[in-house]
Design a protein around this nucleic acid. Structure first.
Length: 488
RNA sequence: GGCCCCAUCGUCUAGUGGCCUAGGACACCACCCUCUCAAGGUGGAGACACGGGUUCGAAUCCCGUUGGGGCUGCCA
């Protein structure tokens, strides 16, 4: 456990307001780690009655794209994370950074450097000292095309980072190289733009992932060199890792919020799970409403060690949330999964009224909305198909199956069409066949629902209807009598 | 390599010197419930990385080791 330090946690604007920002870079799908960071910022702001600002860090023109910004915005909305200001685009604030760069140069805090990448690398190898060697420090070059602007890092002393999550972290200035503020093409770099914007936007708390901790002393130095505004308080959240305990990566891991949404994760389940990555309420409750999260979120309670993004646990949360849904709500949310173009059945066979009737039974069986499709195929698939291995095992190779199906066809033809009447009939049939109801329902289930696992049989048949049920039983019987050689 | 962060069941965590024969949850196993599968219920297995200190007493404090991670870019 780190020493959280004894510094004041003020970090407020002149007006006494807390102001935080979420500053993603639009270089790909919206990462669950980013979502967690956004959530924690948002919860902190809401609890403090402050402002949550959205800023898009698109200073890297090569990698940023407006489409990704759109994705981030819609994913945040999906999660219920609203912003009070922004989105500000750094690409539209270039003048501010150029102005700050000029001031830094004029005050002597920064200098121009025309060393090429290759030259720096070569000297680094030769000197065996990592990073830039300060070669151009005293050359008095004027800034311009082809020259980067570097920050003049003091050779001695330490830079202190005040961090609510980790306590005070000290960096020896001698271990920090003269870093680049402005590219040789004139584009500002992250460390400059972030500081300029955080100052301009009067950010009081910088809450972001731990991977930013090593660059924080640089930001602090720039901030102080620019002068004026008080430093913000930092809070570095633990990184999210995969099962191999490596930082979640877009290439290796399933990290896109959009993917989870498309699979049928509920935004409130995702939000609840994400909030608990690195944080928890004092009483260890796991299921919290947004209001409860806002009421209890404290940066002081955020953990320091990396958090594993556990899809199984997420699925558990999602299942709990799905089961808690009212039928109407559930059906409304699952609609887009049942009526879109990827569905296995013809569009006109979908009947929402039937879904409503089976909804409670489905809700307690699925962990994601996407799974609902599989439970309804027996109802909507056209033509209806039986899973061959199941048919083979439970119907063909079961000597009693034929008799059970024949009697079911007979009795089901007379019953009032209710789940209860069907159950009573099959219980009678089971008695005649001298087997348990569970063994008697198996061939009927496969014949009518196509699979040996699925929704409860009788309720399903009630919705399927007498006509289709009987014709499927007949179909199974016919299949049973057909020459086996043809299906082998 | 250098700098920085971290270290309780497989996982998320509770624990801030005695309440800890270390608690909860996910996953796992068994049993119960049961028309299949789930859901639910009950029970089980399962952790303080290691070594030194400090202290009457350490999972909790200090040091070291080991291990893991992050950063080390004219990305963010």
């Amino acid at each position: 456990m780190p020493d959280r330090g004894d510094f004041d946690r003020g970090g407020v604007t002149a007006a006494g307001t807390v102001r935080v920002r979420f500053a993603p870079s639009p270089t790909g799908y919206f990462h669950v780690g980013g979502a967690r960071t956004a959530l924690h910022n948002w919860l902190f702001a809401r609890r403090a009655g402050g402002q949550f600002i959205l800023r898009i860090e698109d200073t890297d023109r090569e990698r940023s794209h407006p489409d990704w910004t759109e994705g981030i915005l819609s994913a945040l909305e999906w999660l219920g994370i609203n912003w009070d200001e922004g989105p500000y685009l750094q690409s539209e604030r270039r003048g501010l950074y150029e102005d700050a760069a000029r001031r830094l140069y004029e005050s002597g805090h920064a200098y121009a450097c025309d060393c090429t990448r290759a030259a720096v690398d070569e000297r680094t190898r030769a000197n065996k000292t990592p990073g830039y060697d300060g070669c151009c420090r005293e050359r008095g070059l004027t800034p311009g095309p082809g020259r980067v602007l570097r920050f003049r890092v003091p050779d001695e002393g330490v830079t202190l980072v005040r961090d609510i999550v980790r306590g005070n972290v000290e960096f020896a200035n001698s271990t920090i190289e003269d870093f680049v503020l402005v590219k040789s093409n004139g584009d500002p770099l992250f460390v400059l733009a972030v500081v300029v914007d955080d100052m301009a936007m009067e950010i009081t708390h910088v809450i972001r992932a731990e991977e930013h901790l090593p660059t924080t002393p640089k930001a602090v130095m720039v901030w102080q060199a620019l002068g004026g505004a008080p430093l913000p308080v930092f809070a570095h959240l633990p990184v999210l890792v995969n099962e191999r305990r490596q930082k979640l990566s877009k290439r290796r891991d399933r990290v896109a919020v959009e993917d989870y949404r498309d699979q049928g994760y509920l935004p409130e389940a995702m939000r609840n799970y994400l909030a608990l990555l690195g944080w928890g309420p004092p009483d260890q409750r796991e299921f919290l409403t947004v209001e409860e999260m806002i009421g209890e979120f404290r940066l002081e309670d955020v953990n320091v060690s990396p958090a594993f993004f556990d899809e199984k646990r997420l699925a558990h949360f999602n299942g709990v949330y799905i089961r808690a849904l009212g039928v109407e709500d559930f059906v409304g949310r699952v609609r887009r999964f049942l009526a879109d173009t990827t569905v296995p059945w013809p569009a006109d066979s979908y009947d929402e009224g039937q879904v409503v009737r089976l909804a409670p039974l489905i809700q307690e069986r699925v962990a994601t909305l996407g799974e609902v499709v599989g439970y309804l195929e027996f109802l909507f698939d056209e033509p209806f198909v039986v899973d061959p291995p199941s048919f083979d095992k439970v119907v063909r190779r079961d000597g009693g199956a034929k008799g059970i199906l024949e009697e079911a066809g007979e009795l089901f033809g007379k019953d009032p069409w209710t789940a209860e009447a069907l159950r009573i009939s099959l219980t009678t049939i089971a008695g005649h066949a001298e087997r348990k109801l569970s063994k008697a329902q198996a061939p009927v289930r496969v014949a009518t629902m196509g699979s040996s696992v699925g929704l409860p049989l009788f309720e399903s048949l009630e919705v399927l209807g007498r006509e289709r049920t009987l014709s499927r039983i007949d179909g199974a019987l016919a299949e049973l009598l057909a020459p086996q050689a043809t299906d082998r």
